[in-house]
Computed example of a mutant assay.
Amino acid sequence: MMTRDIEVAGERLTLHAQRAIHWAATRTLLVSDLHLGKGAVFRRAGIAVPSGDTEGDLARLDALIAEFAPERLTVLGDLVHGAATERSAWVERVRAWRQRHADVAIELIAGNHDRHFDVASLGILVRPGKVSAPPFVFAHHPEKHTEGYTLSGHVHPGVTVRDGWRRHRLPAFVFDRDVGMLPAFGTLTGLHDVERASGRRIVAVTPAGLLPVTER
């Protein structure tokens, strides 16, 4: 199953196996932690990683926009990974991608990595801190806010799932009482293991779709 509807703070949210959330009531698509240009940063440092990560991630966004036709795309922090110049190939690709989706309002809740590049120069609205979207608060860091239920990123949550004798470490959506975390959207992103706990809802992202994970 590539999508799964859940209720959070009284609202229906659609989780997608491409590591995104669609909030149909407001036609808002949410993603987090793309870390665009991370491959280029690694290659400049002499670390051999394949190219094409930015193109692949933009293509996945294209598919999500085509599927949900959102009015707004909100990135919950860390759209970019590191410093770049106007001559960086990935910058030109992202700017061209933004122009193709000129009818979609795209905003970034600034994350800790976004300080390294002027994201506004890509044609994307940058919002510092947090944004109130009742009953939610959109933020980068997974912190409780009195104004509403926090939807956030930053952690790159993951969970280990057993399949017989095999163990699979998978990206995951995590929902606690006051804070929800999206899996990192970017291809070249790691995972931070989260614990299963009472009252915590975890939905793992597998190659075959979404898998709810029960408490041990």
Rank of each mutant, 00 (worst) to 15 (best):
M1D: 13
T3I: 12
R4Y: 07
A9P: 08
A9R: 08
E11I: 05
Q18D: 15
R19Q: 14
A20K: 06
A20Y: 13
I21E: 14
H22L: 14
W23G: 04
A24P: 05
T26D: 14
T26W: 14
R27C: 07
S32F: 01
H35R: 08
H35E: 05
L36K: 07
K38C: 10
A40H: 14
R43F: 00
A45L: 05
A45E: 05
G46E: 01
I47S: 01
A48Y: 04
V49F: 04
P50S: 07
T54Y: 01
D57L: 02
D57I: 04
D57G: 03
L58H: 01
L58Q: 07
R60N: 11
D62F: 08
A63E: 15
I65E: 01
F68V: 08
A69G: 04
P70L: 07
E71P: 00
L76Y: 11
L76E: 09
L76P: 09
G77V: 11
V80F: 04
A83V: 14
E86W: 04
S88R: 04
W90K: 01
W90G: 04
V91F: 08
R93P: 00
R93I: 03
R93F: 00
V94I: 11
V94M: 15
W97A: 06
Q99F: 09
H101G: 06
A110H: 03
N112A: 12
H113P: 13
F117A: 09
F117H: 13
A120W: 00
A120N: 02
A120D: 04
A120H: 00
S121Q: 14
L122D: 03
V126S: 02
G129M: 09
P134L: 06
P135C: 02
V137P: 03
A139C: 08
H141N: 09
K144W: 06
H145K: 02
T146S: 15
E147Q: 14
G148C: 05
G148T: 03
L151W: 05
G153Q: 11
H154P: 07
P157I: 02
P157G: 09
P157H: 12
G158E: 12
G158C: 08
T160F: 12
V161H: 01
V161L: 11
D163K: 14
G164Y: 13
R167W: 00
H168P: 00
R169P: 00
R169G: 00
L170H: 10
M181K: 13
M181Q: 15
M181G: 10
P183V: 04
L188N: 07
G190R: 10
V194T: 12
R196L: 15
S198I: 06
S198E: 15
R200M: 06
R201M: 15
I202G: 07
A204L: 10
A204M: 10
V205W: 05
A208L: 11
G209T: 05
L210A: 09
V213S: 11
T214H: 15
